Simulated scan of single mutants.
Amino acid sequence: MHDLVLKGGRVIDPAQGLDKVTDVGFTGGNVAALGDGLEGKEVRDVSGKIVTPGLIDLHTHVYYGGTSLGVDPDSYARQAGCTTLIDAGSAGPGNILGFRKHVIERSETRIVPLINISYPGIFAFSLNVMFGENENLRLISSPECLKAAREHADLVRGIKVRVGRTTSGPMAIAPLDMALEVADHAGLPVMVHLDSPPPYRSEVMPRLRKGDILTHCFRPFPNSPVAGDMNIHDDVLEARERGVIFDIGHGKGSFGFETALTMLKHGFLPDVISSDVHVLSIQGPAFDQLSTMSKFMAIGVPLVEVIRASTINAAKAVNLDDRGTLKPGLLGDATVLEVEEGSFDFRDSTGETHKGKQHLRCGGIVLNGRWW
């Protein structure tokens, strides 16, 4: 008899090619079995709902209380239906220990950090105070970043760097080159944020290696992946062919419907869908992971692909092989989704709206094999 059984839900697990009504059993904190007629000490009837592997938000900012942009991880995870939150460089070498001790180890939801190449991480982020952590190279020490990544190797899954007019300013592309060098020595991928130029997309894309992550990949003009003739830039296509991972990272200013629709028209789906939730974007237009996923359903991406981009693809992007699927023996994390029918006005970062007929809502979370 299992510790917990989710009974009668539509189980969608893209990693296993599974889409059927069946039961899921959890024992000892892990997924134990999938099949009909499972029995458990605790049984949750999820008939009419969708059961997926625990959702993974690949781009969040949850250094709550330690940075000005962080949101409360457990509160956010419950809202967003997530079991794993990848923090995209809120902390740098100078405060990764504080993030670990005061937030990661005290939170119920799983938090996996990418460490910022900048020593203080993202330290000045609000409506009234905004200063790019890579605007001054005195804030970057490659040896310090490498040392911290190695000291926290059990947690850190990548190097985060932000470049662009508002984040690296006069330093332009130099912080990316420094991050790539650290990542090479640490054996980790880089996640790069690119905002308005300089640097230009054409400078960034050729530098990215197989397994590196371009977040904000469907950003609006400028530095959009779409050219003026509405074709995809060659350097973007070449990067995908090379194995670069394309992540949405919606945020407050980094997702455009025009870009997304053009990319989809050319058959270019994002590898990963993520929210880039922080204190500003949680108020809109991103809101959370489920809202971001719902936007892709609204523009024609099938539900199974939206789930794939929020489970197994996200896990693979940061080399987490113990989650992202409901394969027996792996972590006992699952998300129960409800599909709300209606008329919804979805808004992108430019203010453009797109109507949708469905919105995903959180109907429950299983974390570490227990109902959360």
Score class of each variant (00 low, 15 high):
290 L>D: 00
311 T>R: 07
296 F>R: 03
230 M>C: 09
142 S>T: 12
368 N>I: 09
170 P>V: 15
283 Q>C: 09
146 L>Y: 00
83 T>G: 11
151 E>S: 14
287 F>I: 01
22 T>M: 11
229 D>K: 02
368 N>L: 07
173 I>R: 11
149 A>Y: 06
353 T>D: 06
150 R>V: 14
157 R>T: 12
38 L>T: 10
64 Y>K: 08
8 G>F: 00
36 D>A: 15
23 D>C: 12
43 V>Q: 04
342 G>T: 11
220 P>A: 15
164 G>M: 09
122 I>P: 02
363 G>P: 02
323 R>H: 00
173 I>G: 06
230 M>G: 05
61 H>F: 04
52 T>L: 14
317 A>I: 07
308 R>A: 15
196 S>M: 08
241 E>D: 08
84 T>C: 07
217 C>M: 06
117 I>M: 08
194 L>F: 05
19 D>P: 07
146 L>M: 10
267 G>F: 12
61 H>T: 13
370 R>F: 11
24 V>G: 12
122 I>H: 03
344 F>L: 13
146 L>Q: 04
54 G>H: 10
36 D>L: 15
87 D>S: 04
369 G>K: 05
312 I>L: 02
4 L>A: 08
201 R>F: 11
332 G>A: 10
300 G>K: 13
266 H>G: 05
5 V>K: 10
240 R>S: 01
235 D>Y: 09
358 Q>L: 11
19 D>C: 03
253 G>H: 05
281 S>L: 07
361 R>N: 14
218 F>A: 01
305 E>I: 03
162 R>C: 04
275 S>G: 02
149 A>W: 00
286 A>D: 00
160 K>G: 11
364 G>Y: 04
95 N>T: 08
303 L>G: 09
365 I>G: 06
59 H>T: 04
358 Q>Y: 12
88 A>T: 00
289 Q>A: 14
372 W>L: 13
46 V>Q: 02
112 V>Y: 01
132 G>R: 11
234 D>L: 13
86 I>Q: 04
316 K>G: 07
302 P>S: 11
79 Q>M: 10
190 V>A: 10
327 K>L: 14
170 P>I: 15
175 P>G: 15
6 L>A: 04
246 F>D: 01
277 V>N: 01
179 A>N: 07
355 K>E: 14
207 R>F: 03
9 G>P: 05
189 P>W: 03
1 M>F: 07
201 R>D: 05
111 I>S: 05
36 D>W: 02
320 L>Q: 10
304 V>T: 14
268 F>M: 14
1 M>G: 05
357 K>H: 15
96 I>R: 04
251 G>F: 00
206 P>N: 12
234 D>R: 15
106 R>K: 15
81 G>M: 03
150 R>F: 11
61 H>A: 01
6 L>W: 07
84 T>E: 01
174 A>I: 13
55 L>C: 11
356 G>E: 01
35 G>C: 08
104 I>T: 11
37 G>M: 04
259 T>M: 06
302 P>K: 12
252 K>S: 14
287 F>P: 00
268 F>T: 08
140 I>C: 05
25 G>A: 02
271 D>K: 10
